[in-house]
Design a protein around this nucleic acid. Sequence first.
DNA 1: CCCTCTGTGCCACTGAGTGGAACGGACGTG
DNA 2: CACGTCCGTTCCACTCAGTGGCACAGAGGG
Lengths: 249, 249
Amino acid sequence: MGDGLIERAFALLGSFDSEHRAQPLAGLTRRTGMARSTALRVARQLTEVGALERLDDGRFVVGLRLLEIASLAPRGHGLRAVAMPFMEDLFHVTGHHVLLAVRNDDEALLVERLSTHDAVPIRFRVGGRIPLVSTGVGLVLLANAPADVQERALAGFVPGEAGDAIRTADDLRRSLAEIRRGDYAVARRPSPENPRTTAAAPVRDEDGVVAALSVVAPSPQFDPAAYVPAVRAAARAISRQLRTGQGGR
Amino acid sequence: MGDGLIERAFALLGSFDSEHRAQPLAGLTRRTGMARSTALRVARQLTEVGALERLDDGRFVVGLRLLEIASLAPRGHGLRAVAMPFMEDLFHVTGHHVLLAVRNDDEALLVERLSTHDAVPIRFRVGGRIPLVSTGVGLVLLANAPADVQERALAGFVPGEAGDAIRTADDLRRSLAEIRRGDYAVARRPSPENPRTTAAAPVRDEDGVVAALSVVAPSPQFDPAAYVPAVRAAARAISRQLRTGQGGR
DNA sequence: CCCTCTGTGCCACTGAGTGGAACGGACGTG
DNA sequence: CACGTCCGTTCCACTCAGTGGCACAGAGGG
Protein backbone atom coordinates (compact mmCIF):
# COMPACT_ATOMS: atom_id res chain seq x y z
CA MET A 1 0.00 0.00 0.00
CA GLY A 2 2.23 2.74 -1.23
CA ASP A 3 3.10 2.79 -4.87
CA GLY A 4 4.03 6.22 -6.00
CA LEU A 5 3.17 9.47 -4.37
CA ILE A 6 2.08 10.89 -7.66
CA GLU A 7 -0.21 7.95 -8.21
CA ARG A 8 -1.68 8.57 -4.79
CA ALA A 9 -2.10 12.24 -5.42
CA PHE A 10 -4.04 11.54 -8.57
CA ALA A 11 -6.04 8.84 -6.88
CA LEU A 12 -7.03 11.50 -4.42
CA LEU A 13 -7.91 13.93 -7.18
CA GLY A 14 -9.79 11.16 -8.92
CA SER A 15 -11.92 10.59 -5.85
CA PHE A 16 -13.85 13.68 -6.81
CA ASP A 17 -16.76 13.12 -9.14
CA SER A 18 -19.95 14.86 -10.06
CA GLU A 19 -21.63 13.62 -6.91
CA HIS A 20 -18.64 14.50 -4.76
CA ARG A 21 -17.44 17.89 -5.84
CA ALA A 22 -16.69 18.99 -2.30
CA GLN A 23 -15.27 16.41 0.08
CA PRO A 24 -14.16 16.61 3.71
CA LEU A 25 -10.96 14.90 4.70
CA ALA A 26 -12.89 11.92 5.95
CA GLY A 27 -14.42 11.50 2.53
CA LEU A 28 -11.02 11.49 0.91
CA THR A 29 -9.69 8.85 3.25
CA ARG A 30 -12.75 6.71 2.77
CA ARG A 31 -12.74 6.88 -1.00
CA THR A 32 -9.03 6.42 -1.44
CA GLY A 33 -8.25 4.07 1.40
CA MET A 34 -5.31 6.19 2.45
CA ALA A 35 -4.33 6.78 6.05
CA ARG A 36 -5.80 9.92 7.52
CA SER A 37 -2.51 11.63 8.06
CA THR A 38 -1.38 10.78 4.57
CA ALA A 39 -4.56 11.97 2.93
CA LEU A 40 -4.37 15.20 4.85
CA ARG A 41 -0.75 15.80 3.93
CA VAL A 42 -1.27 15.04 0.26
CA ALA A 43 -4.43 17.14 0.13
CA ARG A 44 -2.59 20.01 1.75
CA GLN A 45 0.20 19.83 -0.74
CA LEU A 46 -2.26 19.72 -3.58
CA THR A 47 -3.94 22.74 -2.08
CA GLU A 48 -0.60 24.51 -1.91
CA VAL A 49 -0.06 24.12 -5.63
CA GLY A 50 -3.64 25.07 -6.41
CA ALA A 51 -4.82 21.69 -7.60
CA LEU A 52 -7.28 21.71 -4.74
CA GLU A 53 -8.91 24.53 -2.83
CA ARG A 54 -10.25 24.46 0.64
CA LEU A 55 -13.62 25.86 1.59
CA ASP A 56 -14.31 27.68 4.81
CA ASP A 57 -15.93 24.59 6.26
CA GLY A 58 -12.78 22.57 5.68
CA ARG A 59 -13.96 20.63 2.68
CA PHE A 60 -11.77 20.26 -0.36
CA VAL A 61 -12.76 21.07 -3.92
CA VAL A 62 -10.91 20.84 -7.20
CA GLY A 63 -8.97 24.03 -7.81
CA LEU A 64 -8.49 26.36 -10.71
CA ARG A 65 -4.88 25.45 -11.28
CA LEU A 66 -6.00 22.22 -12.86
CA LEU A 67 -8.23 24.09 -15.25
CA GLU A 68 -5.30 26.27 -16.12
CA ILE A 69 -3.04 23.36 -16.92
CA ALA A 70 -5.74 21.26 -18.54
CA SER A 71 -6.53 24.07 -20.93
CA LEU A 72 -3.19 23.34 -22.58
CA ALA A 73 -4.11 19.79 -23.50
CA PRO A 74 -3.91 19.68 -27.29
CA ARG A 75 -6.57 17.00 -27.50
CA GLY A 76 -8.75 18.92 -25.04
CA HIS A 77 -8.96 22.65 -25.08
CA GLY A 78 -6.59 22.93 -27.99
CA LEU A 79 -9.01 21.05 -30.16
CA ARG A 80 -11.91 22.79 -28.53
CA ALA A 81 -10.55 26.22 -29.36
CA VAL A 82 -10.61 25.63 -33.08
CA ALA A 83 -13.85 23.64 -33.02
CA MET A 84 -15.87 26.05 -30.94
CA PRO A 85 -16.94 28.57 -33.57
CA PHE A 86 -18.13 25.81 -35.87
CA MET A 87 -19.96 24.13 -33.05
CA GLU A 88 -21.63 27.45 -32.38
CA ASP A 89 -22.84 27.62 -35.93
CA LEU A 90 -24.13 24.10 -35.83
CA PHE A 91 -25.80 24.73 -32.53
CA HIS A 92 -27.71 27.69 -33.83
CA VAL A 93 -28.69 26.19 -37.09
CA THR A 94 -30.05 23.06 -35.46
CA GLY A 95 -31.05 24.31 -32.02
CA HIS A 96 -30.06 20.96 -30.52
CA HIS A 97 -27.26 19.63 -28.39
CA VAL A 98 -23.89 19.70 -30.09
CA LEU A 99 -21.19 17.37 -28.75
CA LEU A 100 -17.46 17.14 -29.32
CA ALA A 101 -15.66 14.07 -27.98
CA VAL A 102 -12.28 12.39 -28.24
CA ARG A 103 -11.36 8.79 -27.63
CA ASN A 104 -9.36 7.86 -24.58
CA ASP A 105 -8.47 4.19 -24.56
CA ASP A 106 -11.74 2.29 -24.59
CA GLU A 107 -13.98 5.20 -23.79
CA ALA A 108 -14.75 8.62 -25.15
CA LEU A 109 -14.33 11.83 -23.24
CA LEU A 110 -16.69 14.73 -23.78
CA VAL A 111 -14.61 17.79 -24.59
CA GLU A 112 -17.39 20.25 -25.23
CA ARG A 113 -21.12 20.42 -25.23
CA LEU A 114 -23.48 23.17 -26.29
CA SER A 115 -27.01 23.06 -24.98
CA THR A 116 -30.05 25.22 -24.60
CA HIS A 117 -31.33 26.17 -21.14
CA ASP A 118 -34.40 24.06 -21.07
CA ALA A 119 -34.10 21.12 -18.74
CA VAL A 120 -31.41 19.52 -20.87
CA PRO A 121 -32.11 15.84 -20.56
CA ILE A 122 -28.77 14.46 -21.58
CA ARG A 123 -26.55 12.27 -19.50
CA PHE A 124 -23.19 13.58 -20.59
CA ARG A 125 -21.17 16.22 -18.88
CA VAL A 126 -18.15 18.08 -20.20
CA GLY A 127 -15.12 16.22 -18.92
CA GLY A 128 -17.20 13.09 -18.43
CA ARG A 129 -16.83 9.65 -19.96
CA ILE A 130 -18.96 8.34 -22.78
CA PRO A 131 -19.28 4.70 -23.88
CA LEU A 132 -18.04 3.94 -27.37
CA VAL A 133 -20.70 1.50 -28.45
CA SER A 134 -23.95 3.23 -27.64
CA THR A 135 -23.56 6.82 -28.80
CA GLY A 136 -23.07 8.64 -32.05
CA VAL A 137 -19.72 10.15 -31.21
CA GLY A 138 -18.63 6.90 -29.64
CA LEU A 139 -19.43 4.86 -32.73
CA VAL A 140 -17.61 7.28 -34.98
CA LEU A 141 -14.54 7.15 -32.76
CA LEU A 142 -14.72 3.40 -32.47
CA ALA A 143 -15.11 2.91 -36.20
CA ASN A 144 -11.90 4.84 -36.73
CA ALA A 145 -9.97 3.39 -33.80
CA PRO A 146 -7.04 0.97 -34.00
CA ALA A 147 -7.89 -2.67 -34.49
CA ASP A 148 -7.23 -3.73 -30.91
CA VAL A 149 -9.71 -1.20 -29.55
CA GLN A 150 -12.38 -2.44 -31.91
CA GLU A 151 -11.65 -6.03 -31.03
CA ARG A 152 -12.02 -5.34 -27.35
CA ALA A 153 -15.29 -3.53 -28.00
CA LEU A 154 -16.61 -6.42 -30.09
CA ALA A 155 -15.43 -9.02 -27.61
CA GLY A 156 -16.86 -7.19 -24.62
CA PHE A 157 -20.12 -6.31 -26.29
CA VAL A 158 -23.20 -7.09 -24.25
CA PRO A 159 -26.39 -7.35 -26.30
CA GLY A 160 -28.86 -4.63 -25.54
CA GLU A 161 -26.41 -1.95 -24.51
CA ALA A 162 -26.50 -0.26 -27.88
CA GLY A 163 -30.16 0.22 -28.63
CA ASP A 164 -32.38 -1.50 -31.15
CA ALA A 165 -30.37 -1.31 -34.36
CA ILE A 166 -27.30 -2.96 -32.91
CA ARG A 167 -28.24 -6.12 -31.08
CA THR A 168 -25.26 -8.35 -31.57
CA ALA A 169 -21.53 -8.00 -31.94
CA ASP A 170 -22.01 -8.74 -35.61
CA ASP A 171 -24.46 -5.89 -35.94
CA LEU A 172 -21.84 -3.70 -34.36
CA ARG A 173 -19.16 -4.88 -36.75
CA ARG A 174 -21.41 -4.12 -39.69
CA SER A 175 -22.32 -0.71 -38.30
CA LEU A 176 -18.69 0.21 -37.91
CA ALA A 177 -17.97 -0.75 -41.49
CA GLU A 178 -20.97 1.27 -42.58
CA ILE A 179 -19.79 4.27 -40.62
CA ARG A 180 -16.34 4.08 -42.15
CA ARG A 181 -17.83 3.86 -45.62
CA GLY A 182 -20.24 6.75 -45.24
CA ASP A 183 -18.00 8.76 -42.92
CA TYR A 184 -20.87 9.48 -40.58
CA ALA A 185 -23.00 7.72 -38.00
CA VAL A 186 -26.63 7.82 -37.01
CA ALA A 187 -27.62 6.35 -33.65
CA ARG A 188 -30.97 5.98 -31.98
CA ARG A 189 -31.61 5.45 -28.34
CA PRO A 190 -35.13 4.09 -28.07
CA SER A 191 -35.36 4.40 -24.31
CA PRO A 192 -38.94 4.31 -22.98
CA GLU A 193 -38.97 8.02 -22.27
CA ASN A 194 -36.26 10.31 -23.59
CA PRO A 195 -35.70 8.72 -26.97
CA ARG A 196 -32.68 10.33 -28.61
CA THR A 197 -31.32 10.45 -32.10
CA THR A 198 -27.81 11.42 -33.01
CA ALA A 199 -25.99 12.35 -36.20
CA ALA A 200 -22.22 12.23 -35.84
CA ALA A 201 -19.14 12.72 -38.02
CA PRO A 202 -15.37 12.39 -37.58
CA VAL A 203 -12.89 15.24 -37.22
CA ARG A 204 -9.38 14.65 -38.59
CA ASP A 205 -5.98 16.19 -38.42
CA GLU A 206 -2.93 15.23 -40.50
CA ASP A 207 -2.72 11.90 -38.75
CA GLY A 208 -6.30 10.75 -38.94
CA VAL A 209 -9.44 10.88 -36.83
CA VAL A 210 -8.93 12.80 -33.61
CA ALA A 211 -12.45 13.60 -32.52
CA ALA A 212 -16.13 13.21 -33.29
CA LEU A 213 -18.80 15.85 -33.62
CA SER A 214 -22.50 15.23 -33.21
CA VAL A 215 -25.96 16.68 -32.95
CA VAL A 216 -28.25 15.05 -30.40
CA ALA A 217 -31.98 15.66 -30.31
CA PRO A 218 -35.19 14.12 -29.04
CA SER A 219 -36.27 11.52 -31.55
CA PRO A 220 -39.84 12.51 -32.40
CA GLN A 221 -39.15 15.81 -34.09
CA PHE A 222 -35.74 14.83 -35.34
CA ASP A 223 -34.95 13.39 -38.71
CA PRO A 224 -31.24 12.72 -38.55
CA ALA A 225 -30.94 12.65 -42.31
CA ALA A 226 -31.71 16.34 -42.32
CA TYR A 227 -28.72 17.15 -40.15
CA VAL A 228 -26.16 14.70 -41.42
CA PRO A 229 -24.92 17.10 -44.10
CA ALA A 230 -24.64 19.95 -41.60
CA VAL A 231 -22.72 17.84 -39.10
CA ARG A 232 -20.41 16.47 -41.76
CA ALA A 233 -19.78 19.93 -43.17
CA ALA A 234 -18.97 21.32 -39.74
CA ALA A 235 -16.69 18.39 -38.98
CA ARG A 236 -14.86 18.92 -42.24
CA ALA A 237 -14.53 22.63 -41.56
CA ILE A 238 -12.96 21.88 -38.19
CA SER A 239 -10.68 19.32 -39.79
CA ARG A 240 -9.46 21.81 -42.36
CA GLN A 241 -8.83 24.40 -39.67
CA LEU A 242 -6.86 21.84 -37.66
CA ARG A 243 -4.57 21.17 -40.58
CA THR A 244 -3.96 24.76 -41.61
CA GLY A 245 -4.06 26.85 -38.49
CA GLN A 246 -1.91 24.83 -36.16
CA GLY A 247 -4.58 24.66 -33.54
CA GLY A 248 -3.11 27.17 -31.15
CA ARG A 249 -4.57 30.43 -29.92
CA MET B 1 16.89 20.84 -3.87
CA GLY B 2 13.86 18.69 -3.36
CA ASP B 3 10.84 20.11 -1.64
CA GLY B 4 7.89 17.90 -2.27
CA LEU B 5 7.41 15.48 -5.06
CA ILE B 6 3.94 16.83 -5.65
CA GLU B 7 5.31 20.32 -5.90
CA ARG B 8 7.80 19.08 -8.45
CA ALA B 9 5.18 17.26 -10.41
CA PHE B 10 3.11 20.39 -10.69
CA ALA B 11 6.14 22.47 -11.49
CA LEU B 12 6.64 20.09 -14.37
CA LEU B 13 3.02 20.38 -15.44
CA GLY B 14 3.28 24.13 -15.07
CA SER B 15 6.21 24.23 -17.46
CA PHE B 16 3.73 23.80 -20.27
CA ASP B 17 2.28 27.00 -21.65
CA SER B 18 0.66 28.15 -24.84
CA GLU B 19 4.05 28.39 -26.56
CA HIS B 20 5.16 25.03 -25.21
CA ARG B 21 2.26 22.64 -25.56
CA ALA B 22 4.50 19.76 -26.57
CA GLN B 23 7.86 19.46 -24.86
CA PRO B 24 10.62 16.91 -25.17
CA LEU B 25 12.29 15.66 -22.02
CA ALA B 26 15.11 18.11 -22.49
CA GLY B 27 12.62 20.96 -22.47
CA LEU B 28 11.15 19.78 -19.22
CA THR B 29 14.53 19.58 -17.53
CA ARG B 30 15.51 23.00 -18.82
CA ARG B 31 12.35 24.73 -17.74
CA THR B 32 12.09 23.07 -14.36
CA GLY B 33 15.73 22.75 -13.43
CA MET B 34 15.21 19.13 -12.44
CA ALA B 35 17.78 16.40 -13.02
CA ARG B 36 17.21 14.50 -16.24
CA SER B 37 16.54 11.20 -14.58
CA THR B 38 14.14 12.83 -12.16
CA ALA B 39 12.26 14.71 -14.83
CA LEU B 40 11.95 11.54 -16.87
CA ARG B 41 10.69 9.54 -13.94
CA VAL B 42 8.18 12.13 -12.85
CA ALA B 43 6.99 12.67 -16.41
CA ARG B 44 6.58 8.94 -16.82
CA GLN B 45 4.51 8.68 -13.71
CA LEU B 46 2.38 11.57 -14.78
CA THR B 47 1.93 9.83 -18.10
CA GLU B 48 0.90 6.69 -16.29
CA VAL B 49 -1.94 8.45 -14.52
CA GLY B 50 -2.94 10.28 -17.68
CA ALA B 51 -1.92 13.76 -16.62
CA LEU B 52 0.51 13.74 -19.50
CA GLU B 53 0.52 11.91 -22.80
CA ARG B 54 3.45 11.01 -24.92
CA LEU B 55 3.57 11.62 -28.64
CA ASP B 56 5.17 9.26 -31.10
CA ASP B 57 8.20 11.49 -31.33
CA GLY B 58 8.76 11.25 -27.58
CA ARG B 59 7.49 14.68 -26.67
CA PHE B 60 5.12 15.14 -23.77
CA VAL B 61 1.80 16.94 -23.90
CA VAL B 62 -0.83 17.62 -21.29
CA GLY B 63 -3.25 14.74 -21.07
CA LEU B 64 -6.97 14.31 -20.95
CA ARG B 65 -7.08 13.12 -17.37
CA LEU B 66 -6.46 16.64 -16.22
CA LEU B 67 -9.40 17.87 -18.25
CA GLU B 68 -11.49 15.20 -16.67
CA ILE B 69 -10.58 16.20 -13.15
CA ALA B 70 -10.55 19.91 -13.83
CA SER B 71 -14.09 19.70 -15.14
CA LEU B 72 -15.17 19.09 -11.56
CA ALA B 73 -13.84 22.40 -10.28
CA PRO B 74 -16.87 24.22 -8.92
CA ARG B 75 -15.38 27.60 -9.74
CA GLY B 76 -14.38 26.40 -13.19
CA HIS B 77 -16.56 24.09 -15.17
CA GLY B 78 -19.20 23.97 -12.48
CA LEU B 79 -19.79 27.64 -12.90
CA ARG B 80 -19.33 27.35 -16.62
CA ALA B 81 -22.03 24.73 -16.93
CA VAL B 82 -24.74 26.99 -15.58
CA ALA B 83 -23.42 30.11 -17.28
CA MET B 84 -23.03 28.65 -20.75
CA PRO B 85 -26.58 28.92 -22.05
CA PHE B 86 -26.83 32.53 -20.99
CA MET B 87 -23.49 33.31 -22.52
CA GLU B 88 -24.76 31.76 -25.70
CA ASP B 89 -27.71 34.08 -25.73
CA LEU B 90 -25.55 37.08 -25.09
CA PHE B 91 -23.15 36.01 -27.76
CA HIS B 92 -25.81 35.80 -30.38
CA VAL B 93 -27.59 38.95 -29.47
CA THR B 94 -24.40 40.99 -29.53
CA GLY B 95 -22.27 39.05 -32.01
CA HIS B 96 -19.16 39.93 -30.01
CA HIS B 97 -16.77 38.14 -27.70
CA VAL B 98 -18.34 37.01 -24.46
CA LEU B 99 -16.02 36.34 -21.52
CA LEU B 100 -16.51 34.65 -18.17
CA ALA B 101 -13.73 34.98 -15.61
CA VAL B 102 -13.12 34.28 -11.93
CA ARG B 103 -10.60 35.81 -9.61
CA ASN B 104 -7.64 33.77 -8.44
CA ASP B 105 -5.55 35.66 -5.92
CA ASP B 106 -4.35 38.80 -7.68
CA GLU B 107 -5.29 37.77 -11.16
CA ALA B 108 -8.32 36.65 -13.06
CA LEU B 109 -8.64 33.36 -14.85
CA LEU B 110 -10.64 33.05 -18.04
CA VAL B 111 -13.15 30.25 -17.58
CA GLU B 112 -14.98 30.54 -20.87
CA ARG B 113 -14.91 32.57 -24.01
CA LEU B 114 -17.24 32.63 -26.97
CA SER B 115 -15.95 34.10 -30.20
CA THR B 116 -16.73 34.25 -33.87
CA HIS B 117 -14.40 32.65 -36.40
CA ASP B 118 -13.01 35.76 -37.93
CA ALA B 119 -9.42 36.37 -36.95
CA VAL B 120 -10.39 36.93 -33.35
CA PRO B 121 -7.99 39.60 -32.19
CA ILE B 122 -8.18 39.08 -28.47
CA ARG B 123 -5.33 38.23 -26.19
CA PHE B 124 -7.11 35.99 -23.77
CA ARG B 125 -7.31 32.25 -23.91
CA VAL B 126 -9.57 29.94 -21.94
CA GLY B 127 -7.58 28.82 -18.94
CA GLY B 128 -5.28 31.82 -19.26
CA ARG B 129 -4.57 34.61 -16.83
CA ILE B 130 -6.05 38.08 -17.09
CA PRO B 131 -4.86 41.19 -15.25
CA LEU B 132 -7.33 42.68 -12.81
CA VAL B 133 -6.69 46.34 -13.48
CA SER B 134 -6.89 46.66 -17.23
CA THR B 135 -9.89 44.64 -18.31
CA GLY B 136 -13.62 44.77 -17.82
CA VAL B 137 -13.96 41.45 -16.05
CA GLY B 138 -10.83 42.20 -14.05
CA LEU B 139 -12.16 45.50 -12.78
CA VAL B 140 -15.47 43.99 -11.79
CA LEU B 141 -13.72 41.23 -9.88
CA LEU B 142 -11.31 43.66 -8.28
CA ALA B 143 -14.06 46.03 -7.24
CA ASN B 144 -15.74 43.18 -5.39
CA ALA B 145 -12.59 41.60 -3.98
CA PRO B 146 -11.48 41.60 -0.35
CA ALA B 147 -9.75 44.74 0.90
CA ASP B 148 -6.25 43.30 0.84
CA VAL B 149 -6.49 42.37 -2.82
CA GLN B 150 -7.60 45.88 -3.71
CA GLU B 151 -4.83 47.38 -1.62
CA ARG B 152 -2.20 45.34 -3.37
CA ALA B 153 -3.64 46.33 -6.74
CA LEU B 154 -3.64 50.00 -5.80
CA ALA B 155 -0.17 49.84 -4.31
CA GLY B 156 1.29 47.99 -7.26
CA PHE B 157 -0.47 50.08 -9.87
CA VAL B 158 1.79 51.33 -12.63
CA PRO B 159 0.40 54.33 -14.52
CA GLY B 160 -0.42 53.58 -18.10
CA GLU B 161 -1.24 49.92 -17.68
CA ALA B 162 -4.96 50.53 -17.57
CA GLY B 163 -5.69 52.66 -20.59
CA ASP B 164 -6.68 56.29 -20.79
CA ALA B 165 -9.48 56.61 -18.29
CA ILE B 166 -7.48 55.21 -15.38
CA ARG B 167 -4.13 56.95 -15.19
CA THR B 168 -3.36 56.97 -11.50
CA ALA B 169 -4.03 54.79 -8.49
CA ASP B 170 -6.58 57.36 -7.41
CA ASP B 171 -8.39 57.02 -10.71
CA LEU B 172 -8.47 53.31 -10.12
CA ARG B 173 -9.84 53.73 -6.62
CA ARG B 174 -12.58 55.95 -7.96
CA SER B 175 -13.39 53.56 -10.77
CA LEU B 176 -13.75 50.69 -8.36
CA ALA B 177 -16.17 52.69 -6.22
CA GLU B 178 -18.08 53.60 -9.34
CA ILE B 179 -18.25 49.98 -10.42
CA ARG B 180 -19.54 48.90 -7.02
CA ARG B 181 -22.19 51.61 -7.11
CA GLY B 182 -23.44 50.89 -10.59
CA ASP B 183 -22.80 47.14 -10.44
CA TYR B 184 -21.16 47.15 -13.86
CA ALA B 185 -17.96 48.27 -15.53
CA VAL B 186 -17.06 49.78 -18.85
CA ALA B 187 -13.43 49.65 -19.95
CA ARG B 188 -11.71 51.01 -23.03
CA ARG B 189 -8.40 49.93 -24.39
CA PRO B 190 -7.24 52.68 -26.70
CA SER B 191 -4.35 50.76 -28.19
CA PRO B 192 -3.03 52.17 -31.48
CA GLU B 193 -4.58 49.41 -33.52
CA ASN B 194 -7.11 47.02 -31.99
CA PRO B 195 -8.98 49.42 -29.77
CA ARG B 196 -11.37 47.46 -27.56
CA THR B 197 -14.34 48.31 -25.46
CA THR B 198 -15.81 46.14 -22.76
CA ALA B 199 -19.02 46.04 -20.77
CA ALA B 200 -18.83 43.78 -17.72
CA ALA B 201 -21.02 42.78 -14.79
CA PRO B 202 -20.62 40.63 -11.67
CA VAL B 203 -22.06 37.16 -11.12
CA ARG B 204 -23.00 36.23 -7.55
CA ASP B 205 -23.90 33.17 -5.57
CA GLU B 206 -25.16 33.07 -1.97
CA ASP B 207 -21.84 34.29 -0.68
CA GLY B 208 -21.19 37.19 -3.02
CA VAL B 209 -19.41 37.86 -6.27
CA VAL B 210 -17.89 34.72 -7.77
CA ALA B 211 -17.29 35.68 -11.38
CA ALA B 212 -17.55 38.40 -13.97
CA LEU B 213 -19.23 38.38 -17.35
CA SER B 214 -18.38 40.70 -20.20
CA VAL B 215 -18.86 41.60 -23.83
CA VAL B 216 -15.76 42.72 -25.67
CA ALA B 217 -15.85 44.40 -29.06
CA PRO B 218 -13.80 46.63 -31.34
CA SER B 219 -14.30 50.20 -30.21
CA PRO B 220 -15.42 51.98 -33.38
CA GLN B 221 -18.72 50.24 -33.89
CA PHE B 222 -19.35 49.54 -30.24
CA ASP B 223 -21.29 51.72 -27.87
CA PRO B 224 -20.94 49.93 -24.55
CA ALA B 225 -23.97 51.69 -23.14
CA ALA B 226 -26.08 49.70 -25.54
CA TYR B 227 -24.88 46.39 -24.15
CA VAL B 228 -24.65 47.18 -20.47
CA PRO B 229 -28.26 46.19 -19.83
CA ALA B 230 -27.87 42.93 -21.73
CA VAL B 231 -24.69 41.99 -19.88
CA ARG B 232 -26.18 42.88 -16.52
CA ALA B 233 -29.33 40.95 -17.26
CA ALA B 234 -27.38 37.88 -18.31
CA ALA B 235 -25.17 38.14 -15.24
CA ARG B 236 -28.22 38.33 -13.02
CA ALA B 237 -29.80 35.38 -14.75
CA ILE B 238 -26.69 33.31 -14.13
CA SER B 239 -26.61 34.48 -10.52
CA ARG B 240 -30.18 33.40 -9.96
CA GLN B 241 -29.50 30.02 -11.51
CA LEU B 242 -26.46 29.59 -9.27
CA ARG B 243 -28.57 30.15 -6.19
CA THR B 244 -31.50 27.94 -7.13
CA GLY B 245 -30.15 25.08 -9.21
CA GLN B 246 -27.17 24.03 -7.15
CA GLY B 247 -24.77 24.39 -10.02
CA GLY B 248 -24.32 20.72 -10.76
CA ARG B 249 -25.14 18.76 -13.91
C1' DC C 1 34.78 11.28 -37.88
C1' DC C 2 34.27 13.53 -33.65
C1' DC C 3 31.55 16.29 -30.71
C1' DT C 4 27.10 17.28 -28.79
C1' DC C 5 22.63 16.56 -27.31
C1' DT C 6 19.19 13.56 -26.95
C1' DG C 7 16.52 9.66 -24.31
C1' DT C 8 17.36 5.87 -21.35
C1' DG C 9 18.97 2.37 -17.61
C1' DC C 10 21.41 1.52 -13.37
C1' DC C 11 22.21 1.88 -8.38
C1' DA C 12 23.99 3.24 -3.65
C1' DC C 13 22.53 6.79 -0.52
C1' DT C 14 19.39 9.32 2.24
C1' DG C 15 15.82 12.17 3.39
C1' DA C 16 11.11 12.66 2.29
C1' DG C 17 7.00 10.23 2.88
C1' DT C 18 4.55 6.97 5.83
C1' DG C 19 1.03 5.70 9.14
C1' DG C 20 0.25 4.52 13.95
C1' DA C 21 -0.73 6.92 18.20
C1' DA C 22 -2.44 10.56 20.80
C1' DC C 23 -4.91 15.14 21.51
C1' DG C 24 -8.75 18.44 21.35
C1' DG C 25 -13.00 19.93 19.58
C1' DA C 26 -17.77 19.23 17.76
C1' DC C 27 -21.68 16.81 17.75
C1' DG C 28 -25.51 13.84 19.11
C1' DT C 29 -27.25 10.52 22.24
C1' DG C 30 -28.50 8.23 26.37
C1' DC D 1 -24.20 16.51 31.93
C1' DA D 2 -21.26 12.78 30.87
C1' DC D 3 -20.39 9.57 27.43
C1' DG D 4 -19.07 7.80 23.04
C1' DT D 5 -18.03 8.86 18.37
C1' DC D 6 -16.30 11.03 14.60
C1' DC D 7 -13.84 14.66 12.93
C1' DG D 8 -9.39 17.39 11.82
C1' DT D 9 -4.94 17.91 13.41
C1' DT D 10 -0.01 17.28 15.27
C1' DC D 11 3.89 14.51 16.33
C1' DC D 12 7.53 11.22 15.44
C1' DA D 13 10.51 6.99 14.63
C1' DC D 14 11.04 3.85 10.76
C1' DT D 15 12.02 2.74 6.11
C1' DC D 16 11.36 2.62 1.59
C1' DA D 17 10.58 5.41 -2.34
C1' DG D 18 12.68 9.04 -4.65
C1' DT D 19 17.13 11.07 -5.85
C1' DG D 20 20.70 12.27 -9.08
C1' DG D 21 25.28 11.19 -10.57
C1' DC D 22 27.13 8.15 -13.94
C1' DA D 23 27.38 5.45 -18.01
C1' DC D 24 25.52 3.86 -22.44
C1' DA D 25 23.32 4.26 -27.04
C1' DG D 26 21.44 6.55 -30.90
C1' DA D 27 20.70 10.75 -33.78
C1' DG D 28 22.27 14.73 -35.89
C1' DG D 29 25.42 18.19 -37.61
C1' DG D 30 29.52 20.47 -38.29
